[in-house]
Simulated assay, not measured.
Amino acid sequence: MIAASAKIHPLSVVEDGAVIGENVVIGPFCHVGAKVVLDDEVELLTHVVVTGRTTIGRGTRIFPSAVIGGDPQSIHHAGEETTLTVGERNVIREGVTMNTGTTGGGGKTVVGDGNLFLAYSHIAHDCIVGNGVILSNNVMLAGHVTVEDRAILGGGSAVHQFARVGRHAFVGGLSAVAYDVIPYGMLNGNPGILGGINVVGMSRSGMDKATIHRVRRAFKQIFEGDGSIRANAAAIRDEYFDSEQVLHILDFIAADSDRALSSPNRNKG
């Protein structure tokens, strides 16, 4: 079904079965698969491929040479029908690739709203990406990675499969994210070392100095205390019952994960 207001260049291919919303613009030399849904006001500039069982949310813009909804790059994938869902108002720049999920990983890759994916960044199968995330050029997310809201990953950084990057975290360019990065954390290097909290990002998001100071204090208690990271985190929960930000960190640490936690001290778990 193609809305009457959609504008599709005659040099593009839209397969029968695709759903094209109101005011969608499809430029020349694009290919849209039969199981694709493009919501209202989506724009494909030129030379864009959207394939698989993929839904692209309202107002998302996709730049040349992006391939969205390709099969997962997994030796375990045997052609099963899985999905990719991309939310609203995303900007997907040149050469970006996003894959559908795998049956073993839940069958879906999910991307939220208002994200910016710079050129040649990659989102692998079964990833979950939140809202307001920035992936800089050539960032690579392996399979089953979770990136929470408003995290920023610098150019050329790579995230190990099953790792988590917490909300408002910052990952420096060319960093290797082998382990989970706590919310509001700042990680740099290869291998990545947690260097503190993302003060600049927190300030830009509107957090006041008192809030940032409490998060910094909690960070020191967690990572510089006498016990293990998880024991230290559990011990301070009552102290920070009224701090939304610190509780984000404590809940993140307490959650089940396939990866260890990034820290300033590699020998402390």
Rank of each mutant, 00 (worst) to 15 (best):
A3Q: 07
S5N: 07
L11Y: 13
V14H: 04
A18T: 05
I20L: 04
I20S: 02
V24D: 08
I26W: 05
G27P: 02
C30W: 02
H31K: 13
G33M: 09
A34D: 15
V37A: 02
D39H: 14
V42R: 09
E43P: 00
T46D: 13
H47M: 08
V50S: 02
V50L: 02
T54Q: 06
T55C: 00
I56N: 01
G57M: 06
G57I: 02
R58E: 15
G59N: 04
F63T: 03
F63S: 05
V67C: 11
I68M: 01
D71A: 12
P72G: 08
S74F: 07
I75N: 12
H77A: 08
A78E: 14
E80P: 03
E81L: 15
T83D: 14
L84K: 01
L84H: 06
L84R: 05
E88F: 00
E88N: 14
N90D: 11
V91L: 15
V91K: 13
V91S: 12
I92K: 00
V96F: 00
G101F: 08
T103S: 14
T103F: 03
G104M: 09
G105D: 10
G105I: 09
G105N: 11
G105W: 09
G106D: 13
G106P: 11
T109L: 10
V111G: 01
G112P: 07
G112T: 07
G112Y: 05
G114Y: 04
L116W: 08
Y120D: 12
S121V: 03
I123S: 02
D126C: 09
V133R: 05
I134F: 02
I134C: 03
N138C: 14
V139Q: 08
M140R: 03
M140P: 00
L141I: 04
A142K: 02
A151P: 03
I152R: 01
I152H: 03
L153E: 06
G155L: 07
S157M: 03
A158H: 00
A158N: 08
A158M: 13
H160A: 03
R164A: 03
V171R: 01
S175T: 15
A178C: 02
A178Y: 10
A178R: 11
I182M: 15
I182N: 07
I182K: 04
M186V: 13
N188V: 15
N190P: 04
P191Q: 10
G192K: 06
G195F: 05
I197E: 12
V199F: 04
V199K: 12
V200M: 14
G206S: 11
G206E: 12
H213T: 15
V215K: 02
R216T: 12
R216Y: 11
R217Q: 15
Q221T: 07
I222D: 12
F223N: 08
F223L: 10
G227S: 15
A233I: 06
E239T: 14
Y240K: 13
S243E: 15
E244T: 13
V246P: 10
D251K: 13
F252I: 06
F252C: 07
F252K: 06
D256R: 08
S262W: 03
S263L: 01
S263W: 01
N265P: 00
R266M: 10
K268D: 05
